[in-house]
Amino acid sequence: MTVEAIPAQKHIIKPSRAWLDLGLRELWDYRELVYFLIWRDVKVRYKQTLFGAGWAILKPFLGMVVFSIIFGRLAGLSTDGLPGPVFYFSGLLPWILFQDGVSKSGMSLVAGRSLLTKVYFPRLAMPLASVSAGLVDLGLSFLVLLGLMIYFSTSFGGQWWAAPLFVAWGLLASIGVGLWLSALNVLYRDVSYVTPFLLQAWFFATPVVYPANLIPEGPWRLLYSLNPMAGVVQGFRWAMLGVGEAPGPLAAISFGMTILILLSGVVFFRRMERGFADVI
């Protein structure tokens, strides 16, 4: 009989000392597992719910309704000249990708502990799959955004083709934060309690319910752009709807932060990984 899978390879087992072995090659070898984990997360996500995948649409939709009333009507925040619903919904799309990705991947290792302590696979696969599964939700709610844009007859931005790039950026940010949280959560279960607060604060530091130009120019703007999601949400709106500033140096800072969080996240995760099965 033939064994066609992962070729007969030699595994060296010894205490690892390397600092900077990202293990991406191995992750690639296990890409089918990543695919299956994503597939599992997507399948399971709305099992035994009444609305099923409808929640992928309902969640941002309900958020949009609430924001329209509170921030639009009551607080009277500017919506960059766009109809409120389109403005909020377009901000919520990348935000929910990030929020779900971070909270789900943060829990992924602990939730999958029975796997983790029994079978070997690159541990990166777990948080990675949790984040990526959110793309399906994003795809569904994207259709709603198109519907809203048609309903309110909003015109497309000239750079609509760049929207996927900003989604990918949001994904990277989500993976970076998710890696940090998931590895920390193995050691300290406090992470489960901290994450909701963190995300709540992060939400208000991201231009979802207000336009970024509400932040005064100068050092504040600079500080603001350290938030990776500020760049993502602004950029996504700019690409889809053509509002706000085109990405410039501030967006570059934002992107730089994303890469920094991501790389440090991978290094930290790999560093902690060795003890996962022993302490989880």
Binding site: A5, Q9, I13, K14
Partner: peptide, 14 residues
């Protein structure tokens, strides 16, 4: 699944 604290091992094959 877990790493040894010391020593070395080689495993050839799936």
């Amino acid at each position: 699944v877990t790493e040894p604290t010391e020593g070395y091992a080689e495993v050839i094959g799936r």
